[in-house]
Structure formats: C-alpha cells, structure tokens
Write a protein that binds this DNA or RNA. Structure first.
Lengths: 194, 194
DNA sequence: TTTGTAAATGAATTAACACTCATTTTTTGA
DNA sequence: TCAAAAAATGAGTGTTAATTCATTTACAAA
C-alpha cells in the first residue's frame, strides 16, 4: 500500500463519497467506485486496505476538515450565545456545502459497526464543544444554572441532526443554513408562551 | 407463500429482530435468522418474500403497535402540554421496552433505501401527531403563536431521537423514560436564563 | 536511448450467501 | 388406520462482488 496521499488517493475518496451517498455502503461496489474515480479496480487497493477502509478514511478526512472549521467558528464567537450560534451555523453550512458528506454522516455512520467506536469519538468531540459552550454560558449568567448538561448536549445535537435529516430526505431543496437562527431561538427560549 | 401469520411467522420476526439489531441488516444472514427462530432456512421463504421483506414486515409490525399506543397516549393527555408529555414519555418507554426495535429503528431504518419511502410515511405519522399538538397548544394559548411549526416538529423529534441514540450507544444502561420530563422542560422553557 | 523502478491495470480467483426445490415430516379428516 | 394435503426441511445452485496478482505502462535517472 502506498503511503503518500496523492491526487489519485483523493479522487478515489471523492468517487467513494459519490457512490456511497447514492447507493449506501453495502450496495456500492469497488468497481463502481473505481469507475467514478477514473481508476482501475486494483488501483484502489494500492491506496486502501479494503472497502471498509475507504469509508473509514473518508470519514476521517471529512471530520478533520469540519472540526477544524467548527473550532474556529466557536473561537470567533464572543460569549456563549454567539459561540453556540456560530457552531450551529457552521455545522449546517458545511453539511449544506458537501451533500455527499451529509448523506454519509446521517446514514452510514450510525450504521457501520466496524467504525462505530471511531464514531463515538467523533460525536464526543462535538459534544465537548457543547459542554464548553454551555458551561461558559452558565458562568456568564446567560444560561440557566439548573441545566442537566449531559441531556442538553444530546438535545442540541439531536435537534440539529434532525433538521439535517429532514433536509436530506427532502432532496436538499431548501436553504439549510437559514435554519440556524430559528433553531437557536428555539434552544434559547423554548416553545412555551409566557 | 403462506398467508396466515401463525406463531412461526412471529418467531421468525422475533429472531430477525434479534439478529438485525446485533449485526445490522447486511451482515445478518438468513441462516442466522433461521437458527435464532428455530426453523430451517427454507421455512423463512414460506412466510417472507425475501430478506428485505423480513425487515419491512418487522417495521410494519412494530410501528403498528407503537403508533397505536402513541395515539392513545396523546388522546389521554388533557391539553397540549400533557399530550406532548405523554407522547414523548410513550415514545421513550416503548423504545426502552423493546431494545431490538430501538436499535433497528435508530440505525437500519434510515439506512435501507428499499424501504425509505415507507419510512417517510412513518415519520410523517409522528410529525402529524406533533402538528396536531402544537396547533392545539397555540389555540389554547400555552404555546407561542410565532412558532414555525415545520421546524419545531423536526426539533422535537430530532431531540428525542438524539436522546435514544445516546442511550443505545451507551448500551441501554440507564433509565430512558426518566428523560421525558427533563426533555419536556427543555422544549418548553429553553436554556436561556431570564 | 536504455534500463530499472514504481504505479497502474483488469482478468481470474474465491468465498459468501440468498434463494430453490426434491424430499421428508406432520397434520387432517375419512 | 391410512392416504392425501400441507408444512417444513436443508443440501445444492447460481450469482455477486471483494480481493489478488501476473502483466503492462509510465516515469526517472544514467
């Protein structure tokens, strides 16, 4: 297996992203990915251990990029509320701009058990962003002291993912990033009339 | 194919539930399901068209039961807030009491494309419960008039699913139904300090 | 231009597994 | 008690697709 990640490596990752998102991991074949990437079947095995490894590396690569951007978005926010808003907006924007990634993250990632411990780590990084923001918000006094942070984190992430799932299921027709502000507003104020 | 759903039919469904939830749909084999159900491989084809059909019927069967209970839970609630609380509690309780179903719904259902239009219908039923409750809440005056109901529905369902996913990922260690009240409280009041 | 090395190819191999069907077992009712 | 029908069996079949590897092509240095 070649170690260096040249342009062919990335075109295979890219082809895999397209095929996986179209057909799902198990229905996708190596030949289809090779054709999509414009290489021979055998070439794939110069860059990847096996089919699982393609998905694994796809996810690694994408999460590397996305978490980097999320980190920056959080850092740029001034105060807990702005940080949370930036995180949500960044999340929605990045998924909107890379639909293959969005589909694969919302479907495959939960599904493929061989990469599931890896995935726990990934959602942990996200949940740690949230912990950081929520604790800051409590210190600042803009967020309630009596929050059960363990639950709030799941609540926030679950709702964003729910919104993304709906968007994917609706063939990505509408503007996803524009959901960020209304979503934030719901997180903050809830649905009760006062 | 036999039409009547006798006890063998249900033991196959049950075996399939166990195997699918343990290994995922694609990694599960007919032989494993047959073994789990205590029948021969060929017997499965007396009751089901093919492997896809087993999953499809499993989902049909389970949703039939669960939606029935949810309908009753919603009807029993007095007012929008009680209806919503009952729905969420029922959802969490039913999933907690049938872990195979919970795993399959949280993973396979999003994944298997051959049953995806079917699944849209299923989540539509759920979302319709929510529409009904939210509109009632607005009429009663206990829920904000300016809610974008299309978003709030996804928000509510997404958050419940997020909580269930976490519970599944944590090997169902803690009590799931007990999350219903804290979750309701978050929906209603949000996280902002006032 | 030649030659040695690295990269790429795709036909051939092989294993897995969904599904079939000839045979056996069980049930029914006369 | 028996024979016809229904249900169940599981070994065998055929297909699909991941992976391998002998061969070819591209490239770099001499």
């Amino acid at each position: 297996m070649l170690k260096e990640k040249n342009e062919k490596y990335y075109s295979i990752l890219d082809g895999a992203g397209a095929v996986f998102s179209r057909l799902g991991f198990y229905k996708s074949t190596i030949s289809q990915i090779a054709a999509e990437a414009g290489v021979a079947d055998g070439t794939i095995y110069l860059y990847f251990k096996n089919k699982d490894d393609i998905l694994y590396q796809f996810i690694r690569f994408k999460t590397g990029i996305v978490f980097e951007k999320m980190r920056r978005a959080v850092n740029e926010g001034d105060g807990a509320e702005a940080k949370l808003r930036n995180l949500i907006r960044c999340h929605l924007r990045e998924f909107e701009n890379d639909i293959n990634m969005a589909v694969i993250f919302q479907t495959e990632v939960r599904y493929i058990r061989t990469i599931q411990s890896e995935m726990k780590d990934i959602s942990k990084i996200y949940l740690d962003f949230l912990t950081e923001i929520l604790e800051l918000g409590q210190m600042e006094g803009c967020m309630r002291q009596d929050l059960f942070i363990g639950l709030v984190k799941r609540f926030v992430l679950g709702a964003v993912e729910g919104v993304i799932n709906t968007w994917v299921a609706a063939d990505c027709k509408y503007n996803l990033e524009s959901m960020a502000d209304p979503l934030m507003e719901l997180y903050l104020n809830g649905i009760r009339k006062r």
